[in-house]
Design a protein around this nucleic acid. Structure first.
Length: 814
DNA sequence: AGCACGCCGACT
DNA sequence: GTCGGCGTGCTC
């Protein structure tokens, strides 16, 4: 048998399968999707079996050496292959779609601990062992032990140059070892070895004073299951030595077994209660259910206003899918994978769910993922990369808040989970549901063209009204001499809610959570000496750090520019808001969520819990409080400054603002109490603010689409961003220029090629960045053309060190 | 990406 | 004359 293997060398030259013979003794272990160790040139590498074929029938595949010259697979790494044929083919599709190597697409599908690492060792040969070296040094060291090459380089920098000579002389040899980072957790467990009859005989022989032993035996008999040793000790209060005694009598067995780390081990989940559907929910669900039952591919856009009960529809669809013996994936944006959401799924589906999110340790993540591979669960809930859950009969994928930008991966492979989901569901004849109150323009446009079936839910559960939105023109406030950050109407509404003991959410529309250091005398900002970007202040150790290269400096006491001592960090402004609240409303209880208060692990959840249980009047925060939160007593939402995201140099700025205002407004009045939303702005006339005020997605959509058409942006045009980087400007410009000249004559008439221009972040890690932008409507040969470009760029990289990256459908143009 | 092989400058 | 610089080419 011959295996085709993709090796873990993520470059173009090796981006193809290599053929290996499968030795007979490994044949039962090797399958399509196996992770294997293979010799590759002089070294050993990890690889993935993508195909198996019979040598007798077909000889070796085209391009491979003859049968006799094939090397053999050396090892199989897992007892169950981590990949399915479907995922292997999906990875191939990704490599074409996103211009990445096949292996990098395969790797992104797997938990990080499975990635291979090759270690290079130096060891003595028989010849050296026969004649021990007299001089102290590397050779003598090697006589006693083998040494990792990297260590030898550090410890014997002088002698390392002689190693090739020693190899030739037959004194030492290299060997290579492939390892991964898998760790498996083990616990001791106690098993009863006695049958019921034997137990009856044994019990009377136990003396009265050993009632704990008796208790244990009965306990084990009752459950008929092995029990973790730690539980035994806490529940019976037995001493370890007593337990050993029972083992010696042959009544019980104590053994080490492997367990899956379970992040939710200490939690119990009540069985969830189903609420009856509203008419809107029922209509949507009926259409989805029909598609699920039909077993054909279908894709839906579920456009439901905030609070319309989309989650209930999702749950029902998942349940239906499981009933038919198929599996389901539920994707959420990273930040809304909250304990609340996990709880909801655990309550409904119990231990049939695996939860994959970034807060897990690598080991926990691996264990959750293994539940899927081993078929222990049928539902996967997680962020972006959970789209690759290795189910064998995947019937349903749901993407909640599908407009969220976190579904796009910003490193290679630069995939969009929405597109990958579509591809998987086409291949599996499955159903895709995209859900949002504010769909991405691209998505809605495809829905209007029939690529997604549009399902609308325009009413909240219980016919609760959408909150009343008040837009406040902050310029008026200034004219009225109100220089506070709270408008008069927001002020009086806060007063009102405090009196009624209802809760308030205040939202500061700032991008991300970053804070920077600026001199108040001369305006100098601390920036990275290697990247054109300002440093981010970290309160915990009073340092400023560069997000891109990790450069760190201590907080200066004086401005490096003008020596002024008035240099300080500017935060997201939440502290300032908090201070003013305290001043205006004495005794107000504010729960602040920002970088400072949520950096500790678990702090996020803790703060939300405090708010939920009424230990705060106001929840004050940035982006992170915009979505998913559902607190019954919140009846007022205030947006302090709605404009801040409006003036970003991004063609999606209006869309982002509309989405944010709609989402944050959706937090108010979700239950019995009616809600109000106050939006403070300096541009109340802007259409994204106006339409958000009226909860009018469609009008926003139409107006924004006109702008996109005019400016030639998605969804009318598709984009490809090509970025070049190099240490010096002339070289990088020359490369970008050459590429532009190569592409231009090969592109369709209607395609626009912009650039080269400097990237918005013109330098990262001391490398200058220039970019080209392709805007196109119909370019059937684009994938091939870009593949050619990639091959060319590979040469430039080797010869001149110019790096090129291609981002298909970029989300951020940085 | 590594690694080996191979062809030209500064040292014994 | 050799050691070692990194250009070139290959990896089943």
């Amino acid at each position: 048998m011959i295996a085709q293997v993709i090796v873990e060398v993520p470059v173009n030259r090796t981006n193809r399968p290599f053929d290996y013979a499968v030795p007979e003794w490994l044949e039962p272990m090797v399958a399509i999707g196996s992770r294997v160790v293979v010799p590759f040139g002089p070294r050993k590498l990890q690889g993935y079996v993508i195909n198996l074929y019979d040598a007798e029938e077909s000889g070796t595949q085209e391009g491979a050496p003859s049968l006799l010259k094939l090397k053999e697979i050396e090892q199989v790494q897992d007892d169950v292959p981590p990949l399915t044929l479907e995922l292997i083919q999906l990875a191939e599709w990704m490599s074409r779609q996103y211009l990445c190597t096949w292996v990098s697409a395969l790797q992104v599908m797997l938990p990080a601990v499975l990635k291979g690492k090759t270690k290079k060792w130096l060891s003595a040969t028989e010849q050296l062992l026969a004649g021990p070296p007299q001089q102290p040094g590397l050779l003598q060291e090697l006589y006693w032990r083998r040494i990792e090459f990297e260590e030898a380089e550090k410890q014997f920098p002088q002698e390392i140059k002689q190693v090739p000579g020693w190899v030739k002389a037959g004194l030492v040899s290299f060997d290579y070892q492939v390892t991964d980072k898998i760790t498996r957790k083990q616990i001791s467990q106690v098993t009863l070895l006695l049958s019921d009859e034997e137990l009856v005989q044994v019990l009377p022989t136990i003396p009265e004073r050993s009632r704990r032993a008796r208790q244990l035996l009965l306990l084990l008999q009752e459950t008929r299951e092995p029990m973790p040793l730690s539980d035994v000790l806490t529940e019976t209060g037995m001493a370890r030595s007593t337990l050993k005694g029972l083992e010696q009598k042959g009544w019980i067995r104590i053994e080490q077994v492997e367990v899956f780390r379970d992040p939710y081990a200490n939690r119990t989940f009540a069985k969830g209660v189903k609420h009856p559907f509203t008419t809107w929910q029922q209509l949507a669900y009926t259409a989805i259910e029909a598609a699920i039952n039909g077993g054909e591919h279908a894709a839906f856009l579920l456009h439901g206003v905030t609070g319309s009960g989309k989650t209930e529809v999702y749950m029902e669809a998942i349940e239906r899918t499981l009933d038919l013996g198929r599996e389901a994936i539920f994707l959420v944006p990273e930040i809304s994978l909250t304990p609340q959401m996990v709880k909801r799924f655990k309550e409904r589906f119990g231990d049939r769910v695996a939860v994959l999110h970034s807060a897990l340790s690598q080991g926990e993540r691996y264990d959750e993922w293994r539940k899927i591979v081993h078929g222990h669960v049928q539902v996967a809930v997680g962020a972006r990369s959970a789209i690759f859950a290795p189910f064998k009969n995947l019937g349903l994928v749901i993407i909640d808040e599908e407009h969220e930008s976190s579904y796009k991966q910003e490193e290679t492979p630069r995939y969009h989970a929405r597109d990958v989901a579509m591809q998987r569901m086409k291949n599996n004849n499955g159903v895709l549901i995209l859900g949002s109150a504010t769909p991405a323009l691209e998505t809605y446009a495809l829905a209007t063209r029939g690529r997604y079936r549009l399902l609308t839910m325009s009413e909240r559960v219980g016919k609760r009204p959408l909150p009343t939105v008040h837009v406040v023109d902050m310029r008026d406030e200034l004219r009225q001499e109100n220089r506070s950050m709270f408008s008069r109407s927001l002020f009086s509404l806060i007063e009102d809610r405090l009196a009624k003991q209802e809760q308030i959410v205040l939202f500061l529309n700032r991008r991300g959570f970053s804070t920077f250091v600026m001199c108040r005398s001369c305006g100098y900002t601390l920036s990275c000496p290697h990247c054109d970007i300002s440093l981010t202040y970290h309160k915990t150790n009073h340092t400023s750090r560069c997000h891109y290269c990790g450069y760190t400096v201590a907080q200066p006491q004086h401005c490096p520019e003008c020596q002024s001592p008035h240099i300080r960090f500017f935060g997201t402004g939440t502290q300032k808001v908090e201070a003013e609240l305290a001043q205006l409303f004495p005794g107000i209880r504010v729960i602040r969520m920002d970088v400072d208060t949520t950096s500790r692990k678990g702090a996020h959840e803790e703060l939300l819990d405090r708010f939920r249980t009424g230990q705060g009047d106001v929840l004050l925060g940035t982006q992170m409080i915009a979505k998913g939160l559902d607190f019954p007593k919140v009846t007022l939402v205030g947006v302090i400054a709605a404009d801040t995201s409006l003036h970003l140099p991004d063609f999606r700025a209006a869309e982002k603002t509309f989405q944010l205002l709609t989402q944050v407004g959706g937090r108010a009045g979700r239950h019995e109490l009616k809600g109000d939303v106050v939006i403070q702005t300096y541009t109340p006339e802007h259409f994204s603010i106006q339409h958000a005020t009226h909860h009018d997605y469609l009008s926003f959509y139409e107006e924004e689409m006109r702008h996109r058409r005019q400016a030639g942006y998605p969804p009318y045009f598709r984009l490809v961003l090509i970025t070049f980087s190099h240490e010096d400007v002339p070289t990088v410009i020359r490369a970008a220029d050459l590429m532009a000249q190569y592409l231009k004559p090969r592109l369709a008439e209607t395609t626009r090629l912009l650039g080269p221009v400097a990237s918005p972040i013109a330098r990262i890690k001391d490398r200058f960045r220039f970019q080209l932008m392709l805007k196109y409507r119909d370019e059937p040969k684009l994938a091939d053309l870009l593949a050619q470009a990639t091959a060319q760029a590979q040469e430039w990289q080797k010869q001149h060190g110019v790096l090129m990256t291609i981002d298909v459908d970029p989300q951020v143009l940085l």
